[in-house]
Nucleic acid binder design. Structure first.
Lengths: 211, 211
DNA sequence: AATGATAAGTTATCAGTGATAGATTATCGC
DNA sequence: GCGATAATCTATCACTGATAACTTATCATT
């Protein structure tokens, strides 16, 4: 029967006390530079100034570390969406603005976007299996905010589709297609990027809203 | 100065003489079951009835093997697109049909689709680096056929966009978004699939063509 | 039919991966 | 100082993709 001691916060060996943050920072930098697959746990550990097994005191698996980075980045997206809600109104202009928030997020946080929507869980369920659906849940949250906007447009009779949920899903797919292709195939001979994004949003608007 | 001997076809040890085909067949089955990442070269070799290093007599790397599978599958898509050209006409109905050919291909050949459009080359260029852009080239070919259709529609004044190339790219992105999300996130609470696809195509049509 | 050349396949091995076990060191309350 | 525990390290495991060196089967030719 052990005494229920108070887990007093204690400074680790390293330095300030934020080992976990240091690891996440180092990992994010490496992932952004070289991609998720090619970065090894040993490289992360070295960049964080610790030994490789020490990582496993803070993260159960490499995937858990990645998922954590993803969840944090999505918190940023949620914040942006929330901020955008301030000047929301059921108008085509606000629609365009919301689309661009999503696209900008994906292109600015490609690693987070990858983990959330582009990396597959293995068929036998290794990746993200015990991670539950944490990063996915973060994405679902964003999706809900999205669905609310579309429902609002639908309620005002501005949508060209009777089922707002279905419309939300097709719009999301439309956005995801551009973001994921730009991330995965940057070397493709795309037309000028700004024009591409603007054209894409315009196409989605024409397809989703009544003219 | 070696005599330019005739490389007479010779039966290998194994059986019929189609070792390479046997390997590709075994690999495709395994990849479809368990995903690209989790299947090891040893598993492929065992399924093909040879030792693991023997694979490297036929494929320089595992990625080359994957790329080969992709190229073959894309030949199938090219064939479908070509077949679809038979009853092509610059009409909304034909547009819908072409969209569906693409979506159906992606959903029926998810492994090929993954390799062609969803798997990223590592930033430092390991994957598909020496593979050149073979599978990518196969995709580009498909893209061209697509661009031809859009240009035809544009020439007949049916498009809602002045730049047919940009429109082709946004449409492709729109298609890719649905296909890749359905492949990567099948567990997401989608609306009924057929209605989703039909709705997606309808949205793309309204966004791309004049009503 | 025996021969040399070559293709096809083998076993043994390498460096690198994610992850675990057990010993070791630092830091705490007392 | 003391014991307890958190934090970290070294050593190691099973497995990965890939290579080297050797052996065996098949061929064209004599």
């Amino acid at each position: 029967m052990k005494a229920p001691q108070v887990r007093s916060p204690r400074k680790p060996k390293g330095q300030g006390g934020e080992r976990r943050e240091e690891i996440l920072d180092a990992a994010l930098r490496l992932f952004s530079d070289k991609g998720l697959q090619t970065v090894s746990t040993r490289q992360i550990a070295e960049a964080a100034g610790i030994s490789q097994p020490a990582l496993y005191a803070y993260f159960a698996t490499k995937d858990d570390l990645i998922a954590e980075l993803c969840v944090r980045a999505f918190a940023g997206l949620a914040a942006r969406m929330e901020a955008g809600k301030a000047d929301w109104s059921p108008t085509p202009e606000a629609f365009d603005k919301a689309m661009r928030v999503y696209i900008d997020f994906g292109l600015e946080q490609p690693d987070a976007y990858r983990v959330a929507f582009m990396i597959e869980k293995s068929h036998d369920g290794s990746f993200l299996a015990r991670t539950g659906g944490r990063p996915m849940a973060a994405g679902v949250e964003t999706f809900k905010a999205f669905a609310a906007m579309i429902s609002d447009l639908h309620a005002h009779g501005l949508t060209a589709e009777d089922d707002p949920l279905r419309l939300t899903q097709t719009l999301w797919a439309g956005l995801h297609g551009l973001v994921s292709l730009l991330i995965a195939r940057p070397e493709f001979p795309w037309v000028e990027r700004e024009a591409l994004i603007a054209g894409h949003i315009a196409m989605l608007r024409r397809g989703a809203l009544t003219s």
